[in-house]
Each structure stands twice: as structure tokens, then as C-alpha cells.
Simulated assay, not measured.
Amino acid sequence: MIQILKVIFPLVAMFGMTAAVRGEIRSETIDYQIAGQPFRGYVSYDDAIEGKRPGVLVVHEWWGHNAYARKRADMLAELGYTAFALDMYGAGKLADHPDDAKKFMQATLADMNVATARFNEAMRLLQRQSTVDSGKIAAIGYCFGGGIVLQMARSGADLAGVVSFHGSLGTDTPAQPGTVKAEVLVMNGADDPFVSAEQIDAFKQEMQKAAVNYEFVNYPGVKHSFTNPEADAFGKRFDMPLVYNAEADQDSWSRMQAFLKRVFTKP
């Protein structure tokens, strides 16, 4: 069982963020436990909206639960959703070097039952928020997080939709007909060296065989981590093919907005 402790964000937020309340957007940290291990998430919502609204989970990049994931949660709150940037690694496990990021990621993916339990507990936590319509939940993810939300869709998680931004596509447990409940939207950089043409073909065949309602967007000339403005700095620092692309970032966010509006208004 999750033990939850809510702490309202002060104006000078933890993790170096600046304003915790911007206009009608309110943000909170949520400290919780899974199997005795501490985790720290971040919920954001517009308190000017009355009543319940859909909830969206945000799954972080391989660096861990950082300011970028929280920024996207705030952006979703501005769209009228309650967003929860969850923690897949555990409190305090935030990487600033690829070696640490790889270690945290591999430890999480070593047992998909553990990874699934962490995602599901975060989803239940979001559903319990007073501002959330518990029957309308979606998930978005970036890089590592993109792969996670796709895997949760494959597992049959009760999600209206999932959106992957420059996420991994491969899996050892492909989607099966009749299992996937979520609609799927994938945004990928066509020049991303971490995603091969063979993986793209295999993913599309998997979705088609499982009769999944999906869309795959491949941005020409775009590389990995194209939505993160800090990608260029990370790429230069660690000699990695990470490149921000403003046009693809804006287009993918616009496509996500249309996707979420559609899946949340389906009868």
C-alpha cells in the first residue's frame, strides 16, 4: 500500500524550480512509498477549474524525475488536466551522467513486474486526487518514459491513451489482440540512431496484428531527445546524438493535445 504524504510546494520549490504557483496553476510534491522504498512525484493542476477533469501521467527520461518532467506536468495543467510526473527510480535517484542514468534505467527494467507496479501505483495515486476523473487517465513519456508508457499499453493498463516522445519501441512482450485498451500515439525522430528502421517496422507490424488504434509520426532529419531544450547541451557534454528541434517539439505537443482531447471525449 502506498503511504502518501502531500507537501504543498513553497514559492521556492524543491529541486531548484522557481515558482510553485503560476497564476491559477498549483503544484505539489507527493512523497510516497512502494514496497518500503521512497518515491517522490509532482502533481500540477489549475485550481480555477471547477470539478473533476482527466488526469495525465508523465514518465521521465532516463535521467530520472527531474525539472523537465515537472515542466511538462505544468504545461498539461495549463491545458486543463491534472498531471502527475511520477518517479520510476526512487527518491534521490537523479542522474547527471549517462553512466548513472543507464544504471538506474537497467535496474528498473530488470524486472518488468516491478516497473509495472511502480507505474500502476502512481496511476492509482493520480486517480485519488480530488481534481481527477478517475475513469479518464492517459500517460505520456519521454525517451525511457516513452518506452514505459508503450509497455503499459501493451500490458492492458486501463488508459484512454498513451503518447511516446522519442521513446524506445522494442519489447519482449508484444501486444496481443484484445489486450490493449489505450489508443497509441508515437512521435519519433527519423534520424534517431537509437531507433532503427527495423524496430519501427516491427512496432508497426505489432500494432497492426494486435489491432491497436495507433499513429506513428516520423520527423525527417530529427534526432533523439528532440523535445528537450537541454538536449544540445547534454549531447555536447557527453558526445551523444541528442539534438533539440523546436519545430518537432511544437508539432508533437500540438498533436498530443489533439490526441488527448479526442481520447478523453470518446463515449
Rank of each mutant, 00 (worst) to 15 (best):
A138Y: 00
V132I: 05
V7E: 14
V21M: 05
W63M: 03
L126V: 09
M123H: 10
S168Q: 08
G51R: 04
I200E: 02
M1A: 09
K261L: 10
R118H: 08
D46E: 00
M256S: 01
V59S: 12
Q106I: 06
F238L: 03
N113K: 04
R262N: 07
D87P: 11
D251E: 10
A83V: 09
D87H: 05
P177R: 03
N228D: 14
L185N: 02
H97S: 06
L242K: 00
A67W: 07
D158R: 05
D172K: 06
Y142G: 04
V21C: 09
G189E: 06
D191S: 05
F15Q: 15
F119C: 08
S27V: 13
A77R: 12
P177H: 07
H65P: 13
F144Q: 04
P220S: 12
F259A: 00
F234T: 04
A13G: 15
G147N: 00
A48S: 14
A101M: 03
K204M: 11
L260H: 15
L109K: 04
E183T: 05
V184H: 03
V263N: 04
A85W: 14
V132C: 14
A20D: 15
G146K: 02
D111R: 00
A13C: 15
M17K: 09
G16W: 10
V7N: 12
K136C: 04
D47E: 11
T265Q: 14
A175V: 09
V243A: 05
F234H: 08
A19L: 15
V195K: 03
A83T: 07
R40V: 12
K266Y: 05
D133A: 13
H166F: 10
F226I: 03
G147L: 03
V186Y: 08
G167W: 07
M256W: 01
K52P: 11
A20Y: 03
F264N: 04
D249I: 10
F203Q: 00
N66I: 11
F234V: 15
Q250K: 15
F216K: 07
S134H: 10
L150S: 01
I49A: 07
Q3M: 15
G90I: 15
T82N: 06
V59K: 05
T108R: 12
E28H: 13
W63H: 01
A160Y: 08
Y89F: 14
